[in-house]
Nucleic acid binder design. Structure first.
Lengths: 211, 211
DNA sequence: TAGATTGTTAATCGATTAACAATC
DNA sequence: TAGATTGTTAATCGATTAACAATC
């Protein structure tokens, strides 16, 4: 089963399973059933069972899955074992917050360097990651064969940065700028969109108030 | 047309339209067609047309929509005009970053206060918002009739905070903790999940590498 | 009028759910 | 064996897309 045959809805649910499994006490029961997982996460049990069948064949009738194996299978499938190196562009507030966040290692992500148009930011950030001027970006990405770029620049600069990253070998872009990025086929853009979440919440509240 | 009749996929696309329309130059053409919007955002034009028809009746054959009216209709629909007051719980790195972000006003969101279990954080944050101890939360939420809560505490504390918020009148929760929150019917939880985005990117790269 | 664009009705597609058979 | 659980095949549901009619 090739991972790219998996549908996006399924793919987006997998991290929840993983997070829940990891939150279980180490000295608890060694097995867990899809039924139990579904109940804990408020999901349909058939859906959970089908999702798990895509990433693991360790499910046994009557006992369910071995928790540790299932965790391993999910991590394997999600590629959290082999580290992905990423560069970050835009060392403003958000950019530095992401640089400083230590939790990405758990997902196999390593932000190896940051770049910013403002040369005065160059140096090391508090977490010890280097910050360079934009002129250093092309050589760095090409030499290190970096595949992921994280964009935390203002919306007006985002498309240009995106183009630059792609020109230097990046295949996946994590975009925090609130703007649609145009990319050639084969490049994946995943946009982190707070406006989207806010819209869902906001409309819910409007409906709530109006009755 | 009641807003809660709209489907979630549609709702999540609306902010993109709005952002794009706002990015257009003020002195540009006054009209824009669904066709042009679709092309700019890499979407199907039928889809865009159908989405817009749900929030506006200003579309005219041959000319499209009046840009300004469409912006107004979208903002109206998304409830960005009437301000929503929110409280934030957890004044750590992420919490203070959100407090300091000035952009929420554009979406009709006003974070009026923050709370943290660590009393030593009490006082004012740099942006002038007050930070209180957790004991002040119940009275504050009830008196101000706050409807939205933002959770930026560690995963282990999130469910407890969520319960507390709901007990004090909150109807919508914006959750940044990487954990599933259980809530009673009628309460909406929107989780901001970076692990989800990372999974999508990570699997794309794995597939890319393997060929 | 001709053509661009809108909005709607019907067809397709994909994801979820339900029903069932298999297994320990 | 009986019952819990798995995995699979079929049915349903909802969203997207295609085809078309309406309009300026």
């Amino acid at each position: 089963m090739k991972p790219n045959e998996i549908s996006k809805p399924v793919l987006k649910r997998l991290p929840s399973y993983l997070a829940y499994l990891k939150s279980l006490p180490e000295d608890g029961p060694a097995n867990i059933s899809a039924t139990a997982l579904a109940a804990a996460l408020d999901m349909g049990e058939v859906q959970v069972r089908k999702d798990l069948a895509l990433v693991s064949d360790g499910g046994r009738p009557k006992v369910g899955y071995l928790r540790e194996s299932l965790i391993a299978d999910l991590e394997q499938f999600l590629g959290y074992n082999n580290t992905t190196e990423a560069v970050l562009v835009g060392a403003g507030k958000l950019g530095r917050a992401l640089l400083g966040y230590g939790g990405f290692a758990e997902y196999g992500l390593d932000i190896v360097a940051a770049f910013d148009a403002d040369e005065s930011l160059a140096g090391q950030d508090e977490s010890g990651r280097p910050i360079y001027g934009m002129d250093k970006l092309p050589a760095f990405c090409q030499e290190k064969k970096v595949l992921m770029g994280i964009i935390t620049v203002p919306a007006t600069a985002a498309q240009g940065v995106c183009n630059l990253l792609i020109a230097n070998g990046i295949k996946a872009v994590w975009n925090f700028a609130p703007i649609h990025l145009d990319v050639p086929p084969g490049i994946l853009v995943q946009s982190e969109n707070m406006a989207t979440s806010l819209a869902v919440l906001s409309v819910h509240l409007s409906a709530q108030i109006r009755g």
